[in-house]
């Protein structure tokens, strides 16, 4: 599998050396360059043999396989929790049960689990559901605005108006 890259390296280098030989085609330097090219090829072959020795000889097949295979227990621990519990679990930290309970409540509130459970219990016709959603949106908005107004009134009263 890892053979093609090394072969291509050899081919490239051989090509470059042959190009050098072609460029220096004057008769006086011909013999010299030829001997040099042969020496280069020998060096290159030595290098590649070293490359092979370093990458493969000290790694057996079994050892590589041992690293990749985990104990089934460890694999099972890494698999995500599925079903309704996923995303609705809270760990108790430092033995503080009350605090984890309150964070559990906040998870339930933010995901509207109780509300959804309630409206899913009985069938609501689509037109009614649409109106119900509008009504709920309006009431929520109104109560927010009213609270804000009351806060303003209280603030003004505190200042002596």
């Amino acid at each position: 599998m890892l053979r093609p890259p090394s072969m291509s390296i050899i081919q490239n280098r051989l090509l470059s050396t042959s190009r050098l030989c072609l460029n220096n085609n004057t008769p006086s330097t011909g013999d010299k360059s030829k001997s040099q090219a042969i020496a280069d090829v020998d060096n290159l072959l030595n290098e590649t043999s070293n490359f092979h020795a370093n990458s493969f000889s000290n790694r057996s097949k079994d050892r590589m396989f041992d690293i990749s295979v985990k104990h089934p227990r460890d694999v099972a621990k890494l698999i995500r929790v599925q079903g309704p519990v996923a995303g609705r679990s809270v760990d108790v930290q430092y033995g503080n049960f009350a605090r984890s309970l309150s964070s559990m409540f906040s998870v339930i509130r933010s995901n509207k689990i109780r509300y959804l459970k309630k409206i899913q219990a009985r069938h609501i016709p689509p037109a009614k559901l649409r109106k119900q959603k509008k009504r709920e949106w309006w009431r929520r908005k109104f109560s927010l605005g009213f609270k804000e107004l009351m806060a303003q009134v209280r603030d003004a009263k505190r200042r002596g108006y």
Binding site: R88, S89, V92, H123
Partner: peptide, 19 residues
């Protein structure tokens, strides 16, 4: 050590009972 909520919610499915 852990608290979790296992309330099942519906995604589509059959029609519930009438109101």
């Amino acid at each position: 050590v852990r608290i979790s909520d296992n309330t099942k919610l519906r995604f589509g499915g059959s029609r519930p009972k009438k109101l």
